[in-house]
Design a binder for these strands. Sequence first.
RNA 1: GGGUGGUUAGCUCAGUUGGUUUAGAGCGUCUGGUUUACACCCAGAAGGUCACAGGUUCGAUUCCUGUACCACCCACCA
Length: 928
Amino acid sequence: MLPKAYDPKACEDKIYALWEESGAFMADAKSKKEPFVISMPPPNATGQLHLGHAVMLALEDIFTRFARMQGKEALWVPGTDHAAIATESVVIKKIQKEEKIKDPRAHYGREKLVAKIAEFVDISRGVIRSQVRKMGASCDWSRERYTLDASLNRCVNEVFKKMYADGLIYRGQRIVNWDPKMQTTVSDDEIEYVEEKAPYYTFQHGPFQISTARPETKFGDKYVVMHPDDERYKQYKDGDTFECEWINGRITATVIKDDKAIDPTFGTGCMTITPWHDMTDFDLAERRGLKREQIIGFDGRLLDVAGEFSGLPIEEARSRVVEKLKEKGLLVKVDENYVHRIAVSYRGKGIVEPQIKEQWFIDVNKQVVEWPASAKATAGKKKKKMSLKQVMQDVIRSKDIRIIPERFEKTYFHWIDNLRDWCVSRQIWWGHRIPVYYCPKCVDHGTPAAEGMRDSGLGQGGIIVSGQSLAQCPKCGGPVVQDPDTLDTWFSSGLWTWSTLIDPSQAQDKSLTLRELLDRSPDFQKFHPTTVMETGYDILFFWVARMILMTTYTTGQIPFKHVYLHGLVRTRDGKKMSKSDPSTCIDPLEIIPKYGADALRLSMIVGQSPGNDFRLYEEKIAGYRNFINKLWNASRFVLMQCEKAGVDPKGVGDRASGVGNLSVADRALLSALQELIADVTDGLATYRLSETGERLYSFVWDFFCDWYLELSKGESNPAVLVQGLRTIVHLLHPYCPFVTEEIWASIAPKGSGQLIREPWPLAEKKLIDREAEGQLQLLISVITAIRSLRAEYGVVPEAKVPVTVRATRFGKFLEEHQSHVLRLANVSELTVTAESPTHRHGIVSTFLNWADIHLSLEGVVDLVKVKANLESERAQLEKFLSGVRAKLGNEQFLARAKTEVIETEQQKLKDGEEKLKKIEERLKALRD
RNA sequence: GGGUGGUUAGCUCAGUUGGUUUAGAGCGUCUGGUUUACACCCAGAAGGUCACAGGUUCGAUUCCUGUACCACCCACCA
C-alpha cells in the first residue's frame, strides 16, 4: 500500500533521472512534427537557483510539457551565461578576500586571471545545473550551451564582423558611463539612480549666478549657457566673452545661448557646462562644437586641471573647492535639502561617472538593414532599408512578435524612442574579446588605433576585423595585437535563440560564412524562430529587445513569436527579496525538500497574472502541498477500490465503452471530464495558466474528490475511477509533473510508457451527457441542503433524521438514487412525495427551485428559531424580488435589453415568487 | 516632468469581450466532526456599498473622464 502522505523527497529525483535517462527531453531535428521551442534564459554560471529562476523554469516547463504531449517536437534549450561583469567582480572579490591580493588584475595579469575565472565558473556551473533539475525542468541537456562556448564565440565574431562591414559598428570618442570601481564602461540600462540629499551650491560666476551639486567638476567652466529668450540676460549675446575670478584664478568664459539645453524657469536660468562628465552637456557641446575637457580621471581622482586639488578623490575635492570659493566670496548660497539622483552601477554598486572615452558602438539609426529579409515574409510587404531601431519597432507593430501582456509593447516602444547608440566595449577581461586586430605596420588601412593600443605604446596601426582569431596581419604578415576590450555581455546574449542552435562541429569550419553556418545547422533549420520567450519583465530592455535587434539583423528571422513576461516574486510584505536580508528570502532549495517541487510550481503559477508582481510565502506553498497530497490520496482511494473489486487498474482499457453499466455519477464524471479537457487545452494554448490551474485544482478537489469519490463509496465502477484519474493526471502533468508521473506508474495501462510522453487527451463529444450532469447536480443540491439544515438547527452529526422531499419533476429519480442521500446526509428515511407534508410541528425546511426539503426534527427543534429563520429568508427574498420587479417594470429595459436577458429575469421572478409562496405557507402552518 | 500598473472579504489575489439567481478562490476566523483515501482531512457558517466623484447605458466591479493613495518604469531640470 502507498504511504498516506505523498513524499516528494522519495520520488522527485528518482523520477527526474528516469525521464532524463529515457531521453524524454530530447528533441529530434529530423522529425516531421511541428516544432515548439523555448530558449531558456541562461542563469549566471556562477549563480545559485533563486525564486526568479524557479518561476521561469516552472512556466517554461509547463509550456514545454504541454507541447510535447500535444505531439509537437518540443525543444527546450538550457544553458548558462558567463555574465561578464558580474562574474569577474565576484571572482576578483573572492581572490581579494581569500588570497589577500589587493589588485588581482595587476597581480595575475590577463591570461592567468581569465584562467582562474574559468576555473571558478567550471566548478559552480554544475551547481546551477543540478538545481535546474530539482524544479523538474524537462529541458534537453544534450543541447546545453554556454555563452562562451567556442561555437557561440564564432557567432559573436561573425556578427561583429558583419556589423562592422555594414557600418553599424563604429569606434568613437563619446560619452559613456564609467564605473571607476570596476574600471569599465557600463551600459545605460545597467545603471540605477539612487536619490540622495546633497548640498546644492550657488556661485557667482562673473556677472552670472550658477548652481551645482558638483562643484568639483567646475574647473573647466568656460561656457555659461542661457536661454535666448530670457529677458534677464538680453544684454548678452551668443559668443560674448567675459573675464571672471574662478577657482584657480582668472578665466575667460563664453556666453552660449541655447533654447534646447536650458529651462529659463529653473533656478537662475543659466548654467555652466561640463561636457566631459555630463550627458546633456556633452550633447550640447557636440551640437555647438564646444571644447571639452576632462576633469576627473578614470580612477575617480581630479586631474591636473584642478591645480592644487589635483589627485584628490571626488568627495574630498568637493568640500575643499567649496571652501576656496567661499573664501573668495564667490559662494552665494547653499541649499542643504536638495535631492538629486546619483547613478550607481547595477553590478558593482560603484558611483558611475560619465566620461568621454573611445569605445565601440552600435549605430541604431543607420538605415542599412533589409527588412523583411526573407522572400516569403516579403509577400505583401515592401522590402525597405531600415535602421536597427526601425526593425525593432516593425516586428512588434506588425504583430510578428506578440508580447504578453500586451501593455508592455508601449513600454518597449518608449524605450526604443529613447535608445542611443549602444556602447558594446567593456574594459574587463571576462567575456568575448572584441575581434579586432591592429597591425602597427599597416597604417595604410587608415584607421587610427584604439585607445588600448595607444596605451600599450603601439601607436597608430591598421585595423582588421576578423571572424576568427588572428596571429598575423593578412596584408604584411607581421604580428598583430588584438583589441584588449571585451564585449558587453548582452551582445552575446542577444544571439542566444539562434547561436545555441548552430551546429558546433560546423562552427569549427572556418571556411564557412555565417549564412552557410546557419543554413547547414539542422537545429537552426528546424527550430528557429523559437516559439516563446519567457522571462521577467525586468529584462525586457536588457535582453528581449537586444535579441530582437541582433537576431533580425543577423538571421533575417524574428527570434521568437511570443514573449511571455512574468512578474517578480516579492515577500509577504510586498518587498523585493534581497540577498542582503536573507530573512526576507524564500530559498527554493530549502522549499523543495520540504514541500516538493510540484507544490512550489503551483504556488508560483496559480493566482498570478503575467507582468504583475506577486507575493510568495510559505503558507501559500503549503496550501498547494496539501493539494498535491489530496491528489495522491485520491489515487490511493482509486487503487483501493480496484483492489476491493478485484480489478487490476493497469488492465483497465482506455475506452469508456466496455466498462460495464455506467451510473449517473459515472456518466456525469465522464461528461465533466470532456469539458475539463477542452478548457485546459484552450487555457494552456492561450497562456492562461493561472485560471487553468485553478480550474484543475477545483475540479480535482471540489468535484472529483468531494463528490465523485464520495459517491463511489456507495456504488463504484473501478474502471471509470481509473479512467477519470488517468485523464486528470494527464491534464495536471504540465503543472505538477512529479506526483502525476508517480501516480501514473500505478494506473497506466499495461505496456504504456511514462506520462511525460503520453499524448494529450482529446475531448470526446459523445461522452458529453448534460442529463447526467444535471441529475448529479440535483443529488448534490439535495444533500447539501439537508447538511445545511442539520447544521443550522444543531442536529448532532451522528443522529439519523427522517426527511421528506416534495418534488414533482425529479421525484422518481430521487427515489431511485436515495441511497446516496441516506449515506451522505445521514438520513434515516427519505420520503419523496408530490404533496406538501401534513405534519407541521418539528419540521424545518428549505426550498430549492425544483424541490422542497423538509427535515423532521420532532421535539428537538425550537419553533421560535424556525420561524425566525424563515422570516429572515423571506425578507431577503422580498428585497431581491423587488429589484427584479423594478427591472421588469422599466419600459426602457423591456425595450432595449436582449430577449434572453429579459427571459432570465422573468424566470427569476417566477422562481422567486414560488419560493416566497412556500415560505409563506410554512409560516402560516407554524402560526396555526 | 512623462508613462504604466494597482486600489475587490481580516490577509494574498482571480475575475477574457457590460446582464447567468444575492461578486469568487486560497489562507485566516467561527461552529461541529477520530465517517477505514486524506487532520497536509471532512461538514457547515460568518465576512465585500468591487478606492472616491462624475459620465455613457435600460443596466457598470467590468467602458470613459477626473481625484486620492500605493508601486514600478522612463526622462538632460543644471
